[in-house]
């Protein structure tokens, strides 16, 4: 428990709030990196997922890709990319974007697939075009699951970004690795606590967003469906 107190003292130490190794700077680095990789991965995965979910084509491929990626160890991918393109920030960006794509892709297409076929048929029957169906029906109904996919991708990225400090001088993970090298347990533990707090905060934000994006009509009708069954 003494160590825990020391690490909290480390977090609160004003010395750690100045210079290039300042805590706020590291937090921003970590967050900025997470947001950037999520944006790149989303730009690739969301359109692809919507296409698979809307047309039903390429579903088997998407399922096997997201399944296979779960088995690939993140540390292995990171070190492999780092060896091929060199130490620095490039390797973590490439590796983490690759890791973030499968959960977002799965969220996007399962969101579309989970929609009752009758709802889409009804939309088609009242004369909506395919584009209108995607934007007006499938997108709002599939949004909670898509956000869920982005949420698990975000968790994965924030966690693996800590590991990325093994390859580059960057983010909160840096404290863990310098602490490990210099046997400064307070710094190591303090850094770990900061990463955990950051991840939990992000998790809370996503949980709130996910609750808010459920269309109001769906919330009220869901309880009725359950009772009929």
């Amino acid at each position: 428990m003494n160590l825990l107190i020391e690490s909290i003292q480390w977090i609160l130490d004003p010395q750690n709030y100045v210079g290039g190794n300042a805590i706020p700077l590291r937090v921003l680095e970590h967050l900025g990196f997470t947001v950037a990789t999520l944006l790149i991965a989303s730009a690739v995965a969301i359109p692809a997922g919507f296409f698979i979910g809307h047309t039903g084509r390429g579903r088997g491929l998407a399922v096997s890709i997201s399944g296979a990626f779960r088995a690939i160890p993140t540390l292995g991918l990171l070190t492999l990319v780092a060896l091929s393109i060199g130490i620095g920030l490039g390797a973590p960006y490439v590796a983490l974007t690759i890791l973030a794509i499968p959960p977002i892709l799965a969220g996007a297409y399962t969101g579309f697939e989970a929609i009752d076929r009758r709802t889409i048929d009804a939309a088609r029957a009242v004369g909506m075009s395919e584009g209108q169906i995607v934007r007006g029906v499938e997108l709002p109904l599939g949004l909670p699951l898509l956000i869920g996919g982005i949420r698990s991708a975000a968790l994965q990225v924030i966690s693996t970004a800590t590991l990325a400090a093994y390859l580059a001088d960057f983010g909160l993970g840096r404290y863990l690795f310098t602490g490990l090298k210099t046997r400064d347990y307070a710094e190591m533990l303090g850094g770990s606590i900061l990463v955990i707090l950051l991840a939990l905060a992000l998790e809370g934000i996503f949980a709130t967003i996910q609750r808010f994006v459920v269309p109001r009509g769906v919330v009220s009708s869901r309880s009725r469906v359950v009772r009929v069954r």
Binding site: T162, S192, I196
Partner: peptide
């Protein structure tokens, strides 16, 4: 359990021994 799952692995490996 959901919060537990959100904890990144490497920091947990370091915090847990304490």
């Amino acid at each position: 359990v959901g919060l537990l799952y959100a904890i990144p692995s490497l920091p947990l490996f370091i915090v847990l021994p304490v």
